[in-house]
Design a binder for these strands. Structure first.
Lengths: 254, 254
DNA sequence: GTAGTCAGATTGTCCGGACATTTGCATTGA
DNA sequence: TCAATGCAAATGTCCGGACAATCTGACTAC
């Protein structure tokens, strides 16, 4: 009986284009990722050793390793010294991204809508000043938005932004999400500190979200940083838990 | 006037021990991380080019790059082509880990306690079977624990585990957290899928957590996978939001 | 039969070099 | 004065090789 586990990459049509400006390791990692996504590389299968794979593609081993490493970082592959590289065997799909409520809803086919209720400049409170690392009392933008899906209120979003970063056009804010606006303004989002909790709705919150007073609400506070580490946004959001929950995929750092 | 921004790593006492079994790139990244943590490398400062740093330490450039890259992945450094490598300029500390409530509480100095209320084997419900990828009705472990801090109930934790993975000793469960038990049993935790929401407490939940019926509760459902992608745990947890909230640090994938 | 040993396979670490690409700044030109 | 050009500096990509560490499985010795 022949060994059933043959290197599955030999039957894969892997090719790299050396004239392309796309880095070789990236071309390879994309093709491998597509093969995993498509099912050509089944979970649990061994990838075949790096040396041979490099030889077959006409690449050096470091380049192949770089491609494989990027997929390991994404959680799609697992390497074991002395054994080989294996496709992870799970329902795992996307790692975890800086979630944008607008994008989340749109991806779920919910056709989100936004109503801008407040768009003004206010002096920073102590809390906001600390979060954005600006002087207390200095000017910051304050926007309040009601996010709806299918005409039903889903979340009430209060955000503060440092001045001069973005011009906040109300029409644009109603047409898309804040993160998308910031990205298109050339801001590179880097990380965010989030705190998720729950509490009963105050009378004002209840009315905004069409809930009863004291009804459970999901709350999130978030400070977002760009790639230089400066705070670019502070948000204080409340969600209707019957309509929304936070879905994460966490990866353990090795 | 001399240029004020001198390479700050020259004044750092960086050394590597080639006789140590610890990889050189790891020794270097640890020292750099410690310097950032300690404040010797101030936010915004440039690190000085890789070539010179490699020469000064007697290392090759790939090794230095590997050390720097690991800190970039952690979000502590930013590289800019044509510019240099810079210390990120923020309050960012730890990226984000697969959070263990027990460890979180212990780190916060809260002296957690655990009361195991149920520790038995039950047939898997449809939901549990789907989460753990076992046959519906097959045997799974079921444990229910009340987590307390300073004698006050904080969370009620229901967990399901596939059979044969771990022997669940009630005494051990009361002395430490589930994740720590799994790790010490040789299980390599890899990723987890989480869903965080909120709802009003049922009468039974209210009594367990010493809250009123209908009081807001924070809920988390989680499936944890090991490095081969197999589900090793499914949890259904409820938290008292006045006592606990989820704190995250998210990194954007470049 | 069982435990210990050894060899092969595979990934992990490290080197030294080469060229490409991007950025910032100084110089040059209109 | 201001814009375009060119140069230097830094990271990004890629190569080919070497040896170490670890896992698996087969073989050997008891």
């Amino acid at each position: 009986m022949p060994k059933p586990d043959v290197d599955p990459t030999v039957s894969l049509d892997l090719r790299v284009d050396r004239s392309s400006p796309v880095p070789l390791y990236f071309q390879l990692s994309q093709q491998l990722e597509a093969a995993i996504e498509h099912g050509s590389l089944t979970p649990g299968s061994l990838l075949g050793n790096e040396i041979e794979l490099a030889a077959r593609l006409g690449l050096s081993r470091p380049t192949v390793r770089q491609a494989i490493q990027s997929l390991v970082d994404k959680g799609l592959l697992v390497r074991r010294r002395g054994v080989g590289t294996q496709v992870v065997h799970s329902q795992v799909k996307r790692p975890l991204e800086l979630s944008s409520l607008y994008d989340d809803l749109e991806a779920a086919g919910q056709r989100p809508a936004t109503k801008v209720l407040v768009n003004t400049v206010v002096p920073a409170s102590a809390e906001v000043a600390a979060a954005l690392a600006v002087a207390e009392g200095s000017d910051v933008h304050r926007i309040e938005r009601l996010r709806l899906a299918h005409g039903e209120p889903m979340a009430y979003l209060i955000n503060f932004l440092p001045p001069g970063l973005l011009d906040l056009d109300t029409n644009q804010l109603e047409a898309t999400g804040l993160y998308r606006l910031m990205r298109s303004a050339g801001i590179t989002l880097h990380s965010a500190r989030q705190s998720i909790g729950a509490r009963g709705a105050t009378a004002a919150e209840a009315e905004r979200l069409a809930e009863a007073e004291g009804a459970p609400l999901l709350t999130m506070q978030r400070t977002t940083f760009d790639d230089t580490g400066r705070a670019v946004e502070f948000g204080d959001h409340t969600y209707r838990p019957t309509r929304y929950s936070f879905e994460f995929q966490l990866l353990v750092r090795p």
